[in-house]
Design a binder for these strands. Structure first.
Length: 605
DNA sequence: TCTAACGTCTCG
DNA sequence: CGAGACGTTAGA
């Protein structure tokens, strides 16, 4: 079992994350399996772990899952360590002359998958070859720009697999955005979710937004889950948080679980930034602690992802199944019956409970708000894959809580995402009126019914009350985000941006620019925004991915730009959020009226 | 040789 | 069809 021997351009998708592992003609790569056909027996040789996907990065067994608990009998690897690539059910090898394409069976996980939240992926989801990009065995993440981590990526990115790989190919997104026609093809709907893929991170690939005649590079999200699918689709700009110093770090594989990142905080300007919110002193800095799981890894050039696919993809159905089955931290809905070969371990996120049953996980193991990290995992970070308990921070004590219901879209199937900018921003970030209690501050397992209030004055314009939601507040420097997380997939995010009112603040922004957090061509705009206190409310489709065990993904899909947030990041991955916010802002800026309406598919858990 | 765990088969 | 059991394979 060489976990690290497989190096290839392998695209793997795991829930919401798409990872592209670039291969260097390594014979051992999964691709090689094309040639591993064992003619004598008519079946392929045993596949090996890709060694690059998130699960493969996990070196320790959780000891809690069914496989771990019953290792002797089941003889299966820990659910958390199950290679994404191997999660797909191996297909029987057709005879060499057989009509079936080898690639179909043996090729590595599909490159584009998207995962999760998929409602039943159409058969078409198997289309599209995997996207391989990046260089030198780096995991790249597709850019958020045009690509939806949760949606299949168009082959435009340069599928590495032949059409015969349909099995692993994600469906080609067909919906387009009026304002961004060019991206139409690259955006895929969640429904097309493919099997999990390896979170691709393209260090150099950044999402690109085209506004009018100019294109602006958007900072890739730190969160690998947000990256554009392909370099083509994604802009070439580098994320503000895309740090070069990290790009070459082979270990920066955070894509999948956002941990493993060796990122050095040192150069990160944000390091010097004051705590985002004084009301959240407890917010751990991504750079604090032994591990900076800041999740910047992938983005920094290791993943060209679309997150967790962050990671790799077998047949879409399989992968989806697998990931979805990971234990969920927020079992809000009755879990559908697990399905799939690894159903117990790899089923829909929403099937959280199932996961318990199947893997012997106790609900308490994954429940929330427990202070401290997983004692099961070596990584003492929140991004820890085995983090069964989300860290908790006390913000409730200091911030006023606003439990008003966030705008939501009635339709879960197809939603319209609307980004609205509100000039009358809120200036007091320290105490944000929009603050909502953390999910775990409420009833975790029972969605709270909130009045249809608005998170804002205009919320009424764009949304309807949601029946239940979880809210979180994210403070990033001067940016604050309120995220309403609902298990049903209809969520909203509010972002407040305060302009630099003081010299210090201005300096801060200057520093940011110095750090190239902002692309030159967009500095002006961005700065403008910063200088103009405002509040931006994004409501609509925010998907929550909960395929990664206790780590859910909060994903916001916007044509041409994807904002993906890890649920877990709500607590702490400031870096990610910052990046996401910036992306979002930039994207909004590209819109004529700072208002856009897009078609987006909602992924409901 | 041992261990891990992939892949197949069987059962419900 | 899914879940589980286990033979078998591959790496250490």
């Amino acid at each position: 079992m060489s976990d690290n021997k497989l190096q290839f351009p392998l695209t793997v998708c795991t829930d919401g994350e798409e990872f592209i592992i670039n291969k260097e003609e390594d014979p051992t790569s999964p691709n090689q399996f094309h040639h591993d056909y064992d003619g004598d027996r008519g079946r392929s040789k045993r596949r090996r772990r890709c060694g690059q996907c998130g699960p493969c990065q996990v070196k320790e067994n959780c000891n809690k899952c069914n496989f771990c608990l019953r290792r002797d009998v089941l003889k299966q690897t820990c659910i958390y360590r199950k290679c994404v690539y191997l999660r797909s059910k191996p297909k029987p090898y057709p005879s060499p002359q057989g009509g079936q394409d080898f690639n179909q069976v043996t090729s590595p996980p599909p490159s584009q998958s998207v995962v999760k939240n998929n409602r039943t992926p159409p058969a078409s989801s198997l289309q599209d070859g995997p996207i391989v990009s990046g260089h030198n065995a780096q995991i790249s993440q597709t850019s958020a720009g045009t690509f939806n981590p949760f949606t299949p990526v168009s082959s435009a990115g340069g599928p590495n697999f032949s059409s015969s790989d349909s099995l692993f190919k994600p469906p080609v997104p067909q919906f387009s955005h009026p304002s961004q026609p060019s991206m139409a093809m690259s955006i895929s709907s969640p429904e097309n979710v493919l099997p999990p893929q390896i979170p691709p991170y393209n260090p150099q690939t950044m999402p690109q937004i085209h506004s009018g005649h100019s294109s602006m590079t958007m900072p890739p999200c730190v969160n690998d889950k947000m990256l554009p699918r392909s370099s083509q689709e994604s802009s070439s700009f580098s994320s503000p948080f895309n740090h070069q110093h990290v790009q070459n770090d082979p270990l920066r594989y955070d894509s999948y679980f956002n941990r493993f990142s060796r990122t050095t905080p040192t150069n990160d300007p944000r390091t010097n930034l004051p705590s985002p919110c004084m009301h959240h002193p407890g917010l751990p800095s991504p750079y604090h602690g032994t591990t900076s799981h800041v999740d910047r890894g992938p983005y920094n050039g290791h993943y060209v992802r679309p997150p967790t696919i962050p990671p790799y993809l077998p047949s879409s159905s399989n992968m989806l199944r697998h990931f979805s089955s990971l234990p969920q931290r927020y079992p809000m809905h009755p879990p559908p019956p697990p399905t799939g070969r690894y159903g117990d371990g790899y089923s829909e996120p929403s099937q959280y409970p199932a996961a318990y049953n199947s893997y012997g996980l106790q609900p308490t193991d994954m429940q929330m708000p427990i202070h401290g990290m997983s004692h099961h995992h070596p990584f003492n970070t929140f991004s820890n894959i085995n983090r069964y308990q989300p860290p908790q921070y006390e913000q409730s004590s200091t911030c006023p809580k606003n439990v008003c219901g966030p705008p939501a879209f009635p339709s879960l199937a197809l939603g319209t995402l609307r980004v609205q900018e509100r000039p009358q921003g809120i200036h007091n970030f320290r105490c944000n009126p929009f603050y909502r209690p953390l999910p775990w501050e409420k009833q975790f397992f029972h969605p709270i019914h909130q009045p249809n209030s608005a998170m804002s004055d205009d919320s009424g314009k764009i949304s309807s009350a949601s029946s239940g939601f979880e809210c979180d507040v994210i403070c990033i420097d001067d940016m604050q985000m309120n995220a309403y997380i609902r298990s049903d997939g209809c969520n909203s995010i509010e972002i407040e941006i305060e302009g630099p009112h003081s010299p210090n603040e201005q300096n801060k922004y200057d520093d940011i620019k110095k750090e190239k957090l902002i692309e030159p061509d967009v500095n002006c705009n961005y700065k403008t925004k910063l200088c103009s206190p405002r509040k931006i409310t994004v409501s609509g489709l925010v998907t929550i991915k909960q395929d990664l065990g206790d780590e859910g993904l909060l994903q916001l899909d916007i044509p041409g730009n994807k904002v993906t947030l890890e649920e877990s990041a709500l607590d702490f991955s400031l870096a990610k959020y910052s990046c996401n916010i910036i992306d979002l802002l930039k994207f909004i800026e590209t819109e004529p009226r700072n208002e856009l309406e897009i078609q987006n598919e909602i992924q409901c858990n």
